[in-house]
Simulated scan of single mutants.
Amino acid sequence: MYWDAMIVKPLARYRIYVEIQDGRKGVFDMKPYLDHGVFRELKELHYFNQVGIVLGAVTWPNEQDIAPETLLAEMQPLASTSSPGEALDRESPPESRP
């Protein structure tokens, strides 16, 4: 469907970069969810970084997922020319940039 995630990459500070099938790109902040239910497991950074896509949905190995409507409503859009590296660069403090 038009809201299927095509690319997802973990970013610093519990954020993920997402590209949607219809061409939208953005960054979704998972921090507000980390103290709730099944999402608590995502606090472990190694596990958080295992984010992937199953049937167009952003998921983790133990079946945590983000509802597509939540993803689209809350992700911060990026310009169509932006890349995951640019999103990460914008979110990093200046002293950590190369």
Rank of each mutant, 00 (worst) to 15 (best):
G23Q: 01
L71R: 01
F28A: 12
A79T: 10
H36D: 06
S82I: 05
E63L: 04
D4I: 07
S92T: 14
G52Q: 07
Y2D: 13
D22A: 07
G37S: 07
P68A: 10
M6G: 02
G85E: 15
V51G: 08
P84N: 12
D4W: 13
Y33M: 15
D29S: 06
T70Q: 02
M75C: 03
M30P: 01
T70M: 02
G26T: 12
I20A: 06
V27C: 12
M30Y: 04
P93K: 05
E86C: 07
G26F: 07
R15Q: 15
A12E: 11
L42W: 01
W60F: 14
K25G: 03
P94I: 15
S92L: 13
E91R: 02
R15E: 06
A73G: 13
D65E: 12
E91S: 11
V18S: 04
D29E: 03
L78K: 15
Q64G: 07
P10C: 15
A67N: 09
A67Q: 14
Y17K: 03
P98Q: 06
I66S: 01
P32K: 10
E41K: 15
S96D: 11
S80F: 00
M1I: 04
S96M: 12
P93Y: 08
K9I: 00
V27T: 05
A87F: 06
H46S: 14
S82P: 01
L11R: 01
E19C: 12
Y47E: 00
L78M: 12
